[in-house]
Write a protein that binds this DNA or RNA. Structure first.
Lengths: 133, 133
DNA sequence: ATCAACCTTACCACCATGGCAAGGTCAAGC
DNA sequence: GCTTGACCTTGCCATGGTGGTAAGGTTGAT
């Protein structure tokens, strides 16, 4: 299978497949005489694995660990679970941070009459250099 | 006030102050004879304004609009409110996306016994190339 | 033989930020 | 006046993942 087909089959762009190879996340596949990369089923599975990990928000560094755990048939599931829990923690922090932003903005937006007049609590809050907020 | 003091006073690093100037987000301040940037109170307020906007997750492009609204004493508060609401919407989308990731992972982690055994529903889900998920 | 669709590598760009380097400036202490 | 240290200047590199683009080679079908 050439890289374009592998990209279609895995949902990972050809560009990214080459990138993953360049950073050592996936193995370099065999090449045809003319230099074309050639992929097999297992490689597609790996790409799908990586794509799903990325879709769940794992970083490349974490994917590196996850793929090695995946390859390691004698891994301890505790290791995987630990990584997953750490990532859940990170996600929760990011959610809380975004939620706090949204809450603040919602409060401000509610106080803004939103008409043609120029006075605006949102801008006031941004500009506050006294203890207003 | 020199840039270091402006950085301390505003919470925006000197590096970022120069960057904001380079992209035209803030005006270039007057320079001393030897080339040092010199800031006044109003410049600090602007930097604080920008910092608060960034802390609420607005993009640089949005900050550009917000600062121009701030400067425009005859703005309509509706314009500010519209921008804020659009950003709240974006934040909500990002939150929902992260929440979906976290929920999926939580479900998988709950199913993983997390001990020394190698079988792991998390990896299984990542690897699924049939309709398992 | 030609043409389109593919492949290859090697760059540039993003966005906001930090770091580092090489050199100029200023103020305080001697 | 000289040294020293803290500051300032510009400029370049790196991040992380991804897309784009360019210049050229390969393949397969007509």
């Amino acid at each position: 299978m050439k890289i374009g087909e592998a990209a279609d089959a895995s949902g990972v762009s050809a560009k990214m497949i080459r990138y993953y190879e360049s950073i050592g996340l996936i193995d370099a596949p065999p090449r045809s005489a003319s230099g074309y990369r050639h992929y097999r089923e297992d490689d597609i599975h790996m790409l799908l694995f990586i794509r799903r990990g990325r879709e769940l928000g794992f970083s490349m560094a974490q994917l590196r660990t996850l793929t090695s755990l995946w390859r390691d048939k004698s891994r301890a599931s505790a290791d995987v679970k630990r990584l997953a829990n750490a990532h859940i923690e990170t996600l929760n922090e990011r959610i809380a941070s975004l939620q706090a932003m949204a809450d603040t903005l919602k409060t401000l937006a509610r106080q803004c009459h939103g008409d043609a007049r120029p006075d605006c609590p949102i801008l006031d809050a941004f500009a506050a250099h006294n203890g207003q907020k």
